[in-house]
Simulated assay, not measured.
Amino acid sequence: METQPKKERSVRLRLLTPLSRKQWAASAAAVFVALLVVAAIAVLFARWLMGLEAVDEFVTRYPGEYALPENAPVGIPAWLGWQHFFNMFFLFLIIRTGIQINRERRPQGYWRSKRGGKKISLTLWTHLILDLLWIINGALFYVLLFATGQWMRIIPTSWDVFPNAVSAGLQYLSLDWPTHNSWVNYNSLQELAYFITVFIAAPLAIVTGYRLSAYWPKDNSSLNSAFPIALARNLHFPVMVYFVVFTVIHVFLVFATGALRNLNHMYAAEDSTNWTGFVLFVLSMAVVAVALVIVRPSLVAPLARKFGEVTAR
Results as ranks from 00 to 15, higher is better:
Thr17Trp: 02
Leu19Glu: 14
Lys22Asn: 14
Trp24Lys: 14
Ala29Gly: 09
Ala34Trp: 00
Val37Gln: 01
Gly64Glu: 03
Tyr66Met: 06
Pro69His: 02
Gly81Glu: 04
Asn87Cys: 09
Leu91Val: 08
Leu93Cys: 01
Ile94Tyr: 12
Arg96Asp: 09
Thr97Ser: 06
Asn102Cys: 01
Glu104Asp: 14
Gln108Arg: 12
Gly116His: 05
Ser121Gly: 04
Leu122Ser: 02
Leu130Gly: 04
Leu132Tyr: 12
Trp134Met: 10
Ile136Gly: 10
Asn137Ala: 13
Asn137Thr: 13
Tyr142His: 11
Leu144Pro: 02
Ala147Thr: 04
Thr148Asn: 08
Gly149Glu: 01
Gln150Ser: 03
Val161Glu: 11
Asn164Phe: 09
Ser167Gln: 08
Ser174Asn: 10
Thr179Met: 12
Ser182Leu: 05
Gln190Thr: 00
Leu192Ala: 03
Leu192Pro: 13
Thr208Gln: 02
Tyr215Ile: 02
Tyr215Glu: 12
Leu231Gly: 06
Ala232Glu: 09
Leu235Phe: 10
Leu235Ile: 04
Pro238Cys: 09
Val239Asp: 13
Val245His: 06
Phe246Gln: 06
Thr247His: 05
Val254Trp: 07
Arg261Pro: 10
His265Asp: 06
Glu270His: 14
Asp271Tyr: 09
Asp271Lys: 05
Thr276Gly: 07
Val279Trp: 15
Val282Ala: 07
Met285Trp: 13
Val287Phe: 12
Ala291Gln: 11
Ala291Pro: 07
Val293Phe: 13
Leu299Ile: 12
Leu303Trp: 15
Lys306Val: 00
Glu309Tyr: 06
Glu309Pro: 00
Ala312Gln: 14
